[in-house]
Design a binder for these strands. Structure first.
Lengths: 115, 115
DNA sequence: AGTAATACTCTCCTTTGGGTTAGTAGCGCA
DNA sequence: TGCGCTACTAACCCAAAGGAGAGTATTACT
């Protein structure tokens, strides 16, 4: 089923595929999501940065903001000094994990079969 | 299980996810694949161009070459004048359709759930 | 007084993806 | 004779994605 109409409508932007890829298609989007589901434990900014090395501050901030806006991660600020911010997966974010797993699985099964 | 090790290995490039996205992540990659599976009929270059409007020559050629190198589409040249080239899905290309369908389905189910 | 720690923000630079336009070869048709 | 059809290729350009490095506020510790 999925998308066939897009071919005559010429609007890939409105497609479910485009929506999904926009959410997880960035360079570190999926890595971030996977890191957050590792232990079902919220992670702090610098902990994430260490896990996602060699990500830059800019990219980590961008990535987290976009994931938060998309409703995939939850951001909790603890008003203390030095600052503390924890990130965790929302249920929507968790619902994406199986989809990403399938993409990974297909890729793993086929990435060494040619080339 | 998919990919968890990538986090400590810091090499997203070797991940199945990255491999899959590289194949279908371009602007017209998935559209092209879907177009080719429409009727299980091979399509000629200009027919594809019409279907994928407003794609440019450059992008269509790029897309088809990359899909061919990836083993997802089959390219058959008929040595005649004017030239005739037909493109069709390989079985590997067809095996990707269900994965793309899932990505589309998730996207369609969730793209209107938050503003 | 100076340094470390946290979670950022800001600016500048390079790389990549994609767009636009023009050109190629050989034949049929007017 | 010259235009159109086919399936391209090559050149140049722009915008967005991503990378590198410095700067910010507040407090505790030495």
């Amino acid at each position: 089923m999925a998308d066939i109409d897009y071919i005559k409508e010429n609007r890939l932007e409105d497609t479910g595929f485009a929506h999904t890829i926009q959410l997880i298609g960035g360079k570190y989007k999926m890595q971030t999501l996977y890191a957050l589901r590792l232990n079902h434990t919220p992670l702090r900014y610098n902990a994430l940065k260490r896990l996602l090395t060699p990500i830059s501050f800019k990219m980590l901030t961008n990535t987290l903001q976009e994931l938060e806006v998309a409703g995939l991660v939850y951001r909790e600020v603890f008003p203390q000094v030095p600052p503390k911010v924890e990130y965790s997966l929302t249920s929507l974010g968790e619902s994406l994990i199986p989809v990403m797993d399938e993409i990974c699985t297909w890729g793993e099964q086929h990435q060494h079969s040619n080339g």
